[in-house]
Design a protein around this nucleic acid. Structure first.
Lengths: 100, 100
DNA sequence: TTTAAATGTTTAAGTTCTTGAACATATAAA
DNA sequence: TTTATATGTTCAAGAACTTAAACATTTAAA
């Protein structure tokens, strides 16, 4: 396997970790339905507490899977999946070429 | 987001978990170079103990990311990434269609 | 059958992740 | 400035993950 493949695998780890949690998937799926949403709006749709939602949003933010637009005291979250999708597509293409 | 998208996200969770560990990625990358390999051969290329490798191989096996060919007392592992790649490609295509 | 080699499983310890309560910060309205 | 609202952070408890030692199982050779 090429060095590029190693780098793609390693770069994908934090994306895999961010996406491998059902609470975070729920946030993504909710935003896909009706973005943008505030933290409170997301927490209201969830069984989790607002701090837990805030925690998961931070993980999604750190991986640039969501973006924020601040309006007054509120922060509106919306999806920013393009970059991650492109990374994973490159990884899959490399795996298809070198491992199948 | 469609119900199909939810199912694809959920079905991907164990794949994401399996692939989000560098030790398991190392096993995959090693097998891509020189498959098939036994557990001992894999452990010899690793800093981890054989039981740890065996544990990670079980996780990869449970997700059908590797397959086994038994020869005498030895089990030769090789990659079986096709199905997972197809699942993730369907997920990415759905995300591209519905979330970008 | 006995022995040796290869592998899997159980167990326990250490680490990391997840969660919500409590606290802190920031923005805007009164 | 004071107050209220929205959000982020810290912390502690519990759950889950990772690891290696010890043990168990399986296969084949002696």
């Amino acid at each position: 396997m090429s060095e590029k493949a190693v780098e793609l695998f390693r770069a994908s780890i934090p994306i895999f970790q961010a996406l491998s949690d059902s609470a975070r998937q729920d946030i993504i799926l909710l935003l896909a339905e009706k973005e943008p949403l505030t933290v409170n709006e997301i927490a209201n749709e969830s069984t989790l507490s607002r701090p837990a939602i805030s925690h998961h949003l931070k993980i999604l933010r750190d991986q640039k899977l969501v973006q924020i637009e601040q309006k007054g005291t509120q922060r509106y979250y919306s999806l920013a999946l393009n970059e991650a999708v492109e990374l994973l597509k490159r990884l899959l293409a490399t795996v298809e070429n070198e491992c199948l």
